[in-house]
């Protein structure tokens, strides 16, 4: 009875989020340095608009909204997965240096002039290496503490930061500007969209079947294995999925931070801790957050664009500090 009504409530919520994400994509078509009227957009849809408007929507705003959608969704799912893996709601791919590892590896691939798929693959390996290192070091002998986990992640992020600086120094000057913008988390230098969308779909489809196991895993390894879960296999699966999703997001949009922290936190308050709801809800909410943040980034200082990573950091940093203070 309780669960049934809850189920319908949650279903309504998911449907609402889906609707909102659709609306935000539509809204993002209108918003920008050159504003379009409803009549302009209808003309484009009917195919009798000016080539300029045509290009503005199909080549710029719509792909950009989809990039924001995919990036936000991937980062949020990666955040939920890492939080379950590390049993800590403060875990986030950006804070723990996983995005840093992916960024460094992706930059290297760009420096060598490799294509999108190679960049994404390279980012995946970089993310995987980071997540393994953070997990092994933070676990240590004495078990987990929040400070140990965060310190390990922060030091890893700093290390990757230094490596990234090194790559930037040896990069030919004509490439530096776009690399810097990309590093700050930017949607305007967008790479081809398709690999990112495929990773999002694969990541989501592989995460959903794990959700009830995640509900148990957050109670710890011993509890999860006493309830019949093969924790070793589950952990390795999460390593791969979180790395894959982070790499997908990083290769699409660079270093967009704190989405994986902010979004799951609010969704936990809204829908509770059942990952069967939390994962899809976070994916949609992350998509909405990033589409809206990108609209702000495009218009706040128009015609100058701000990297969307700056906007998410403005939201994420105070919230992270608040959560950290509350947790200790």
């Amino acid at each position: 009875m309780i669960i049934k009504t809850q189920f319908y409530n949650h279903f309504t919520l998911l449907a609402g989020l889906l609707l909102l994400s659709g609306l935000s994509i539509i809204l993002s078509i209108f918003v920008g340095s050159a504003s379009l009227s409803i009549a302009d957009v209808f003309d484009v849809l009917l195919g009798d608009a000016t080539p300029l408007h045509q290009a503005l929507i199909y080549d710029l705003r719509l792909p950009r909204a989809f990039v924001a959608f995919a990036t936000g969704a991937m980062l949020s799912i990666a955040g939920v997965l890492m939080q379950a893996l590390l049993r800590n709601p403060l875990a986030d791919p950006y804070v723990l240096g996983v995005s840093g590892g992916a960024s460094f590896a992706a930059l290297l691939a760009m420096l060598f002039g490799l294509g999108t798929i190679a960049i994404t693959g390279s980012a995946f390996l970089g993310a995987l290496l980071s997540i393994f290192t953070v997990f092994l070091l933070a676990q240590g002998k004495g078990g987990w503490t929040i400070s140990r986990l965060l310190l390990t992640g922060v030091v890893m992020a700093a290390g990757w930061g230094a490596m990234i600086s090194f790559v930037l120094v040896i990069t030919p000057p004509d490439q530096i500007y776009s690399m810097l913008f990309w590093l700050m988390g930017d949607l305007s230098f967008s790479r081809p969209l398709l690999p990112g969308l495929i990773i999002l779909v694969i990541g989501l489809l592989l995460t959903l079947p794990l959700c009830r196991q995640l509900n148990v895993l957050i109670w710890g390894d011993a509890q999860a294995s006493s309830l019949g879960i093969n924790t070793q296999r589950l952990r390795i699966t999460i390593f791969f999925l979180a790395s894959l999703l982070t790499a997908g997001a990083v290769s699409l949009a660079g270093g967009v931070g704190f989405v994986g922290l902010v979004v799951p936190h609010f969704m936990r308050l809204l829908v509770g801790n059942d990952h069967r709801i939390l994962v899809p809800a976070s994916a949609l909410a992350g998509a909405i957050l990033l589409i809206v943040a990108d609209m702000v980034a495009r218009t706040a200082f128009a015609p100058q664009q701000i990297p969307v990573g700056v906007i998410t950091a403005f939201i994420g940093v105070p919230m992270f500090l608040y959560l950290l203070r509350r947790s200790t």
Binding site: I2, S226, L227, G228
Partner: peptide, 28 residues
């Protein structure tokens, strides 16, 4: 897990969760 269950010495409570939800993981 349907035959043998283990009550651990210590548990962690890192995530918000209701008492009923926490109990229900026993049905996994």
């Amino acid at each position: 897990a349907t035959k043998v269950g283990l009550l651990l010495q210590e548990y962690e409570y890192n995530f918000p969760c209701s008492v009923l939800e926490a109990t229900l993981i026993g049905r996994h």
